[in-house]
């Protein structure tokens, strides 16, 4: 089964439009949504949750259309948006009690466990928390009601590297169960590269690419050569070029690279930057 199926999703605002987005996230997988600020990541998340209305297209969550009794589907979804909107006056203990009434599968023991391991003070009001602490509470809530799908919008931003790594491990562990899935957006590409199965690039409301992460890394490599040497390679195999006064660096499909040319493995961040630059020039 697919955890998320997005078909031809469109939404326009003045100055921005999401253009026929198609995405499929199979159960058991983690998909990373990468895009610069304003690329449409948060819009996509909000469209998925019907916080804003789609102009066109369909979103299917855990097998059910997102306009059909979404409140029931949301029982099985954990969400952390870039701003955790808990009322400032509430403390984590009160939040726990509220959630116990909201989610039929709320597990107060798991919740208490997360508060403890993440060192979240139980009786302090939410408004006194640092951004990292707020995020952690949001994540604790999302993981404490036996959700099958996690939607995370910039959930790791604002956290220090050690905690980010711990939280990424938690997300990764979450999908040890093959009926679980995660869709997470971030502009910290290295975070996504660490744990994702699929990578999707969003640029100005358009999907540039959606591929299995390891395939991408196998398919492409970075070539370091002179401008003349690069002309040997067919232009269709070249994803992006960076020129300096002393040579060029290009991301090229491995199959098109003549043997003997110096190559190095590519990381997703490089691919993203190259592709966005290329797309912006067109």
């Amino acid at each position: 089964m697919n955890a998320i199926e997005i078909k031809n999703l469109c939404k326009s605002y003045p100055g921005f439009s999401l253009d026929h987005l198609n995405l499929t996230l199979p159960s058991g997988c983690i998909m990373g949504l990468i895009g610069e600020n304003g690329a449409g990541k948060s819009t996509t998340m909000k469209l998925i949750l019907d916080i804003i209305r789609q102009d066109q297209g369909t979103v299917t969550l855990l097998g059910r259309d997102n306009r059909d009794r979404l409140q029931l589907t949301k029982q099985d979804i954990g969400v952390v948006l870039d701003e955790v909107g808990i009322c400032g006056c509430l403390n984590p203990k009160q939040v726990g009690k509220i959630m116990a009434h909201a989610y039929s599968n709320w597990d107060s023991q798991t919740y208490a466990g997360y508060l403890k391991t993440m060192a979240i003070p139980e009786n302090k009001p939410f408004q006194s928390f640092s951004r990292g602490m707020k995020m952690k509470l949001g994540i604790a809530i999302a993981l404490s009601h036996r959700a099958k799908l996690l939607l995370l919008d910039e959930a790791t931003s604002g956290l220090d590297p050690v905690i980010r790594d711990e939280i990424l491990t938690m997300f990764s562990e979450f999908t040890r169960d093959e009926t679980h899935a995660v869709l997470m957006s971030s502009h910290i590409v290295s975070d996504l590269e660490k744990i994702c199965d699929y990578i999707a690039f969003l640029h100005r409301g358009k999907l540039l690419l959606c591929q299995e992460k390891d395939r991408l890394k196998e398919e492409y490599a970075i070539v370091h050569c002179t401008t003349e040497d690069l002309q040997v390679i067919s232009p269709s195999a070249i994803q992006g070029v960076k020129k300096t006064a002393y040579g060029v660096e290009a991301i090229v499909a491995r199959s098109a690279i003549p043997s003997g040319m110096a190559i190095s493995p590519m990381d997703i961040e490089q691919l993203f930057i190259f592709m966005v630059k290329e797309a912006s020039e067109i």
Binding site: E173, E178, D197, E212
Partner: peptide
């Protein structure tokens, strides 16, 4: 799944 998660690599 367990091997993938233990090694922190992609399931696919």
């Amino acid at each position: 799944r367990n091997l993938a998660k233990d090694l922190r690599i992609s399931v696919i």
